[in-house]
């Protein structure tokens, strides 16, 4: 099952992840990524991977568990 990781130190709050996959990502009041669900169903893999590719500072990754 895909497992989502975010590096909150790298995050700059650009928000593309939260636009691409709002079920998994949000941005908090300080402008840093929030991961709403760390493990996502296999069926949602392509969307979460698209969200990872939309990050301008490569702060996100998807790993397999």
């Amino acid at each position: 099952m895909p497992w989502v990781k975010a590096d909150r130190d790298l995050c700059k709050g650009y928000g593309n992840c939260a636009m691409t996959d709002p079920d998994v990502f949000d941005v908090d009041g300080d402008g840093t990524v929030l991961v709403l669900r760390e493990s996502v169903p296999e069926a949602d893999r392509s969307r979460v991977e698209a969200a990872v590719r939309s990050c301008p500072v490569s702060a996100l990754s998807v790993q397999d568990e």
Binding site: G13, Y14, G15, A18, D26, V27, G29, G31
Partner: peptide
């Protein structure tokens, strides 16, 4: 300016 959560709200509203 320095308000990422607000621009996200704008983008979602535009969509």
């Amino acid at each position: 300016v320095d308000w990422p959560r607000a621009i996200l709200a704008c983008r979602r509203a535009l969509a």
